[in-house]
């Protein structure tokens, strides 16, 4: 698997083998325009896929932030643990789908155990205590993973039935597995939407995001609700980790990069809002992916090629942070603030 130097790119879809049309080759004007369009299409799909994965991690985290007012730095390692569980169970059962099917409840269980052991005691603490404890937890789990599975990256083969590519336009193809990721993520998003907006638990979640003490005062067992949200959030993050296991290397610290991106998503979307997390995740996925590809190309219009590609490469990783700063400048509580949540 080709890798570029930056840590973020380990996570980035672009670092994966996808047949990109070759620009540098000779071609007529028409071919260039066609090639540009094809590239745009592929990268848009990549951006959506990236955004979907971000959403899965962000959804749980935004609920944890919004409802429990808990800053959980360790959410990224839950994603990592999900990937490791999948790698292990896939190796044990010899079947990826069966591996995921076991990894998901395992991730849920892992989240619940953490909740009981550590997080439960942090809800009442101030943010700084939460930052310190969850920072410590990151150190523990990153090292723990190294001890249990070793420091070398693990890889999971793409399952037979999900391999191959589907044709888009003309000769253009897109890996089937990535389409499956997008589909699975969208299904999860729809399921979450139904859960949050059309069930009793969802009603409690929304109420909790607005005013958790009031929900508790009305006789709801808020501790159980918290535990449920935390376990569910851990499972969603684990699911994201499970799905990237075949396309990325599973290694210690793989959750650290995504944690920061998830924060950006949550801040843009508004703490506590699942809808905001979805919109922001897709936005961040698209801006990041398209920015990396088209930043240098756009800059080439105003600069000479070598300077353009240099500047583009330098600016592209900063784009989402600039986006975040811009959103916050106009809407300090994000795009879809859950009213009364920790703003």
């Amino acid at each position: 698997m080709p890798r570029t130097g930056a840590r973020a790119s380990l996570w980035h879809p672009q670092s994966n083998p996808i047949s990109l049309p070759d620009f540098s080759g000779p071609g007529l004007e028409d071919d260039d325009a066609q090639g540009m369009f094809n590239l745009f299409l592929l990268q848009t799909l990549n951006g959506v896929q990236f955004g979907i994965l971000l959403f899965l991690v962000a959804a749980g985290l935004t609920l944890i932030f919004g409802i429990m007012d808990l800053i959980n730095l360790a959410h990224g390692v839950l994603y990592m643990v999900g990937a490791y569980f999948t790698a292990t169970f896939t190796a044990l059962t010899g079947d990826f789908l069966l591996g995921i099917a076991i990894a998901l409840p395992a991730a849920l269980l892992f989240g619940l155990v953490l909740e009981v052991l550590i997080f439960r005691h942090l809800y009442e603490r101030d943010h700084l205590d939460q930052v310190l404890a969850t920072f410590g937890l990151i150190l523990i789990l990153n090292e723990g993973v190294k001890i249990v599975w070793g420091a070398a990256p693990m890889s999971v083969p793409i399952p037979e039935i999900l391999s191959g590519a589907i044709p888009l336009i003309g000769p253009l193809k897109y890996p089937f597995y990535r389409v499956a990721i997008i589909a699975a993520g969208l299904l999860t998003a729809v399921g979450l939407w139904l859960l949050v907006n059309h069930t009793r638990i969802g009603m409690l979640l929304r109420a909790g995001a607005v005013n958790a003490p009031m929900v508790s005062a009305l006789g709801v067992d808020i501790r159980r609700l918290f535990m449920l949200v935390f376990g569910f959030g851990a499972m969603l993050a684990g699911f994201a980790g499970a799905m990237v296991a075949p396309i990325l290397s599973v290694e210690p610290g793989m959750g650290d990069g995504i944690l920061i991106l998830t924060f950006v998503v949550i801040v843009i979307g508004g703490v506590g809002s699942v809808r905001g997390a979805f919109v922001a995740a897709i936005l961040v996925g698209l801006v990041d992916t398209l920015g990396r590809t088209f930043g240098p190309i756009v800059l080439r219009a105003v600069m000479e090629p070598s300077a353009a590609s240099q500047t583009g490469q330098t600016l592209a990783p900063m784009l989402i942070y600039i986006l975040m700063a811009a959103v916050l400048f106009f809407r300090p509580s994000g795009l879809f603030p859950a009213k009364g949540a920790a703003a």
Partner: peptide, 13 residues
């Protein structure tokens, strides 16, 4: 411009 959890996450970002 922000407070609390937002401030932590933004400075991190």
């Amino acid at each position: 411009r922000t407070k609390g959890v937002y401030f932590i996450m933004i400075t991190l970002a």
